[in-house]
């Protein structure tokens, strides 16, 4: 299991905390943003999640050394923050003017410069149902083990394996032109 599963929100922040936060962002900033982007398919929401994730880290004063598997841990925090963002009512999701960076207003698909074959594959992955998509992302992109994925998603290792297997089948079927209900 990951430890701790969630940072506690009410702890002090100091200079060392800020340095620690920079270290977290240096190491996992891109992974957090990409995971949020992949999940939410919206750059602005992904940036909100990015900030939320690192604020949680900051409040909890968890250093990289405190966590046995920091990558899996922060991805779990990211997915939890994504879930929270999705639950938020739409009027609270609306971004304020100028709040988001200019570099980041386009969707994943528009900015991705993909080779034609990869573009098809990308679309097929994006069309997968949520549980399969996340398993594919964590396994093939973040290269987590099935056990780690189980910890991140809160499911058993067997379930992860089964989802990956099913995801591969669905992708194959889609790419061969016989896509079903994925």
């Amino acid at each position: 299991m990951l430890s701790p599963s969630e940072p506690s929100p009410e702890r002090g922040i100091g200079d060392s905390g800020e340095r620690g936060l920079s270290a977290w962002m240096d190491r996992y900033g891109d992974a957090v943003l990409r995971t949020a982007l992949f999940r939410l398919k919206d750059r602005q929401k992904a940036e909100d999640v990015y900030q939320e994730v690192f604020l949680r880290v900051y409040r909890s004063e968890v250093s990289l050394q405190d966590i046995a598997n920091p990558k899996a841990w922060i991805l779990k925090v990211t997915l939890n923050a994504c879930r929270d963002a999705e639950r938020r009512p739409w009027w609270r999701q609306a971004p304020l003017l100028g709040r988001h960076s200019r570099e980041t207003t386009e969707s994943v698909e528009r900015t991705a410069v993909l080779a034609e074959t990869n573009r098809e594959l990308w679309r097929a992955v994006s069309a997968l149902a949520e549980p399969f998509r996340m398993c594919v992302l964590l396994y093939y992109y973040h290269e987590l083990s099935t056990r780690e994925i189980g910890d991140v998603l809160g499911v058993s290792e067997g379930t992860v394996r089964s989802r990956l297997h099913r995801a591969r089948q669905l992708l194959k079927a889609t790419l061969e032109g016989g896509g079903d209900d994925a």
Partner: peptide
């Protein structure tokens, strides 16, 4: 190919 597709789709996005 799946790995490459994911990398090409996501690696362009960076936390600036």
């Amino acid at each position: 190919a799946l790995k490459r597709a994911l990398q090409e789709g996501l690696d362009g996005h960076r936390a600036g």
